[in-house]
Simulated scan of single mutants.
Amino acid sequence: MVSSERTVADSSTLTGWHKSSYSGGDQGECLEVARGYDAVPVRDSKAARGPAVVASTASWSAFVTAVVNGSLDA
């Protein structure tokens, strides 16, 4: 279950995983997020039984906004 912890050891214990429609190709660089939780679990799509990082909804929203705006470019 998602809690105040910042990780989930086995992300396959969570449901509602969704990969972005922008993900694709054969680069293998896809993230998935799980819907339906108070926080936002994020995992590597290639590691369905691997760990998930858990972000607050505000943090995840700020991250997505920064990506869309190009604010994370090196």
Rank of each mutant, 00 (worst) to 15 (best):
D26L: 07
A55P: 00
E32C: 10
V53P: 00
A39D: 07
A55Q: 13
A9D: 14
A52H: 04
V8K: 01
A62L: 08
A58R: 13
R43C: 05
A62D: 14
T57V: 15
G28R: 05
V64W: 05
S11M: 06
R35H: 11
D73I: 13
V42K: 02
S4V: 13
A52V: 07
A47F: 06
W17A: 08
A39N: 10
V8E: 03
W60G: 09
S12P: 03
E32N: 01
W17P: 03
A48I: 12
D10W: 11
V8Y: 01
R6C: 10
S56I: 08
N69F: 05
R43E: 02
S4H: 09
G24K: 12
G25R: 07
P41I: 04
A74Y: 01
V8M: 11
V68K: 15
A58D: 12
G70T: 13
T57K: 13
C30K: 02
G24F: 06
V67T: 12
N69D: 15
T7R: 12
T15A: 12
S71V: 03
Y22G: 09
K46R: 15
T7H: 01
G50V: 04
A9T: 12
V64E: 07
P51K: 09
S4N: 14
G36V: 10
C30S: 10
Q27P: 00
S71P: 00
G36P: 07
V2K: 01
K46I: 13
V8C: 09
V42L: 12
V8A: 09
A48M: 08
S45R: 05
W60D: 03
V40C: 09
A47G: 00
S21G: 15
F63N: 03
R49G: 12
A39R: 15
R43G: 01
S21M: 11
S4E: 14
